[in-house]
């Protein structure tokens, strides 16, 4: 999860305000742009939506530090933070020579016109099979990112920008991922059978999980203590 969020939070930083027709140069500029945010600390509220998980909205703090350190902490209470069980790191996403970048044309995300770039890793053994980025040309902000991995299925990010859009930092991220069925080990609970079982409609819901983080505030380039990443 940390890494995923890392991607989510760092990718937008990469893009500057100048529209690029050339997809690969977009990515290059992105890497340069990334240099502008060295670190940040953000307050957000995380809402998790997974069929078997009934948890309240959590207040979280997100810490980032260059090049690819990312940590999500709940301020109070316990939180279930989705792991981005994916072995991408920022460096490999943003390094031209390790990815083949393909222009996949235009698309629309939430009513916004975007350019689609597909990133194929050069290394055949990489866990990431394919990354797809949906970039808004007018603002050079990534609106959506899809990643398919060998081991951990696919996940998707959707970003909404507000007053921190200038830094390429989103106000809201929706993270969609595949979950496995949750099964308790047999015989460990003696449950109270209240005669109700889960309605079939709810049961047959897809095993997709969603986590939504709404950011209230970013503190950018003011330094982040290394200790938080441990």
């Amino acid at each position: 999860m940390k890494k995923i969020i890392g991607i989510i939070l760092c990718l937008p930083v990469v893009w500057n305000a100048y529209a690029q027709q050339e997809i690969s140069s977009l990515v290059k500029k992105a890497k340069l742009k990334m240099e502008s945010v060295n670190d940040y600390e953000a307050d957000g509220r995380m809402r998790t939506n997974v069929a078997f998980l009934k948890v309240p909205v959590a207040n979280v703090k997100v810490y980032f530090k260059k090049p690819n350190k990312i940590k999500v902490k709940s301020e109070k209470g316990i939180s279930f933070i989705p792991k981005g069980a994916v072995s991408i790191n920022m460096g490999s996403v943003l390094t031209d020579d390790q990815f083949t970048i393909i222009d996949a044309g235009n698309d629309i995300v939430n009513g916004i016109k975007v350019r689609v770039a597909k990133l194929l890793p050069v290394d055949d053994n990489s866990d990431v099979v394919l990354s797809t980025l949906y970039i808004e040309e007018a603002t050079n902000l990534i609106r959506r990112a899809k990643t398919t991995t060998r081991e951990n299925g696919s996940f998707e990010l959707e970003m909404t920008y507000g007053k921190f859009g200038g830094f390429g930092l989103p106000d809201k991220i929706i993270f969609s991922f595949n979950t496995k069925d949750y099964k308790l080990p047999k015989g460990v609970t003696f449950d109270f059978d209240d005669g109700k079982s889960i309605p079939p409609a709810e049961k047959n819901k897809s095993r997709k999980g969603r986590a939504e983080i709404v950011f209230r505030n970013y503190i950018i380039n003011k330094g982040v203590n290394e200790a938080v990443f441990k």
Partner: peptide
């Protein structure tokens, strides 16, 4: 701290979280 409940409901398992 908050409380985590592991529950079997019908033939499904659930995790519930109750705030402190």
């Amino acid at each position: 701290d908050d409380m985590i409940i592991f529950r079997v409901k019908g033939d499904e398992s659930q995790i519930l979280q109750i705030t402190q």
